[in-house]
């Protein structure tokens, strides 16, 4: 699929594009091997430079290899993906994290997003879509699965009786962002969203990134609760 459209083509002027260097973190060796094989097989855009099976290994490996993107499992012993994010991000802010998990429970998803992941996809994602997601986060964009978009919409919903908004700048979504999220939740690709809302793909990306930023920084009660349940704050 070529859903990046003309905008994406403009951004990579260099024809000899360096492949995105990916680091795999998952405590299931079988799953790591599967992802590595698939990524090696279907594309040259992505190169797996290392893998780790535990939080400690991951922190050491990422610090050593300095990959572009880390594919991060959410559930691992010793604190899981959020712990890796907490340990690595302060030192290597340029490394981008994409959470990849079998869980689609709201607290798991929100927890890693709050800890700083640039996106969240479930393990049932097809390999092509995974490659797209990796390339997209490596370009600084955010990746929302429909379900994650749903959770964020849910958390930012204006419900009667909800806690008062303390920071309207962060704690509300603009109507446009809401529209974009809704279409994401309906399973639209960026290009389709752009066409539907009569805006450019670049604008869609901007909206999605700003939603991600709000999700990470907002004081919304629902988000805070998820985070505090998981001892993230």
């Amino acid at each position: 699929m070529t859903e990046e459209g003309p905008v994406a083509e403009e951004t990579d002027e260099t024809t000899t594009k360096r492949p995105v260097r990916v680091f795999l973190v998952d405590d299931h060796g079988l799953f790591r091997a599967g992802v590595r094989a698939e990524l090696d097989q279907i594309t040259d855009d992505v190169e797996v430079v290392g893998e780790a099976g535990s939080v400690a290994e991951a922190v050491a490996g990422i610090t050593h290899r300095k990959p572009d993107v880390v594919l991060l499992d959410v559930h691992m012993p010793d604190g899981g993906g959020a712990e890796v994010l907490r340990k690595v991000r302060p030192e290597l802010p340029e490394v981008v994290f994409l959470a990849l998990s079998v869980s689609d429970a709201a607290e798991d998803v929100i927890a890693v997003i709050r800890a700083g992941a640039r996106g969240y996809v479930t393990k049932t994602i097809s390999s092509q879509e995974l490659v797209q997601a990796v390339v997209r986060v490596s370009e600084g964009d955010a990746v929302f699965s429909p379900r994650l978009a749903g959770f964020v919409l849910d958390a930012f919903a204006d419900r009667p009786g909800a806690a008062p908004i303390s920071d309207p700048e962060l704690d509300l979504l603009t109507p446009r962002e809401r529209d974009v999220l809704r279409l994401l939740a309906r399973g639209y690709a960026y290009k389709e969203i752009a066409a539907e809302l009569f805006i450019s793909v670049k604008t869609v990306e901007t909206h999605v990134s700003s939603v991600l930023r709000k999700t990470q920084l907002s004081n919304r009660y629902e988000l805070s609760r998820w985070a505090s349940d998981r001892r993230l704050v």
């Binding site: 429909p146 379900r147 849910d154």
Partner: peptide, 9 residues
């Protein structure tokens, strides 16, 4: 087939 369902609210 696979049916992705997302429910908000």
């Amino acid at each position: 087939i696979k049916v992705h369902h997302v429910v908000v609210g």
